[in-house]
């Protein structure tokens, strides 16, 4: 307890109110996740008997749903596609953004204003869905994974976050490195990047989440359903409850509830794994400093 001396003692009603609201908020967020996870770990009979989502863990754990899901090539392929697109896309985006943000953090250099302007204007001017759609199709990227990576490869927000952080690094570090004969690339690699682990981690998370969650670009540009990422399969299987075309013969019926919930769990898990490593930076306010620019 770190209450200041001048602060009055909390009232009982106030404490109860706070405790209650915290409990309700936690429950609203965590309970759905809990029951979905539990249902995915239940056997078909349990789900049948309960008549829907399983709330009480009474019948033990069964991995039937996961087995069934991974026997279905649709889900397995989609998982591989999603992992690949996310890994490649994030790597590309983070590299491009670090380089670009570093370049933008040196005001007064040649072309600096033009480059900065063409990034900052992305916050207020959008090309719109149709022109991008026609352009990406005209580039011949249909059915190509590049079509779902390149249009979202640079996020102006992420570049600005990195730039703001880079600009706060003390000038003396740059000066002494230059005296020692280091070029820009070496300065970035040896000094700036190691000092900027926190914002780089945050930006990496943002990019990775964006790639992992994106289904609309795949929906627009990938006509071949066997190339679909997991998010799009999730939409088709779970939200629309429709069977996928190429699964005919094997699993042409819509999947059972437990399998659906298993797909949901698989779609959530990567976020849950990375999140704890990055979330401490949010609390320290890495983003805020940048937003205030």
């Amino acid at each position: 307890m770190n209450r200041a001396a001048w602060e009055e003692k909390p009232t009982a009603a106030g404490r109860a109110g706070k405790a209650l609201s915290i409990a309700v908020i936690m429950l609203l967020i965590l309970f759905p996740l809990y029951t979905i996870a539990l249902t995915s770990l239940s056997s078909a009979e349990t789900v049948q008997r309960v008549g829907g989502l399983v709330v009480w863990p009474s019948d033990g754990v069964s991995f039937d749903a996961y087995e069934q899901m991974f026997r279905n090539p649709v889900v397995l392929d989609a998982l591989v596609v999603s992992l690949g697109v996310t890994a490649f896309g994030t790597l590309l985006s983070v590299l491009v953004s670090i380089l670009g943000a570093y370049s933008l953090s040196r005001p007064g250099s040649l072309g600096h204003k033009t480059i900065l302007f063409s990034v900052l204007l992305m916050f207020v001017i959008f090309p719109g869905l149709i022109p991008v759609y026609l352009w990406v199709s005209a580039l011949g990227l249909r059915d190509n994974y590049l079509a779902i990576i390149l249009p979202m490869a640079v996020s102006a927000f992420n570049v600005v976050v990195l730039r703001a952080f880079f600009m706060n690094i003390p000038q003396e570090l740059f000066d002494s490195a230059r005296i020692d004969g280091a070029g820009e690339f070496r300065i970035l690699w040896r000094i700036v990047a190691p000092l900027s682990k926190a914002p780089i981690a945050v930006v990496t998370l943002f990019y990775a989440v964006a790639y992992w969650n994106n289904w609309f670009n795949a929906f627009l540009y990938l006509d071949d359903t066997s190339k679909w990422p997991l998010a799009l399969v999730l939409r088709t299987y779970v939200v629309e409850s429709a069977p996928l075309p190429q699964a005919s013969g094997l699993e042409s019926a819509p999947p059972t509830l437990a399998v659906k919930m298993a797909i949901v769990v698989v779609a959530i898990v990567p976020a849950l794994i990375i999140y704890p490593f990055v979330q401490k930076h949010f609390k320290k306010g890495v983003i805020i400093g940048a937003v205030k620019g």
Partner: peptide, 19 residues
Amino acid sequence: MALPMMILVWGFWWIPSLG
């Protein structure tokens, strides 16, 4: 350093904007 970013920003943002 700015070149890759500029290619992506112009190639997938400003050029389609002209469309």
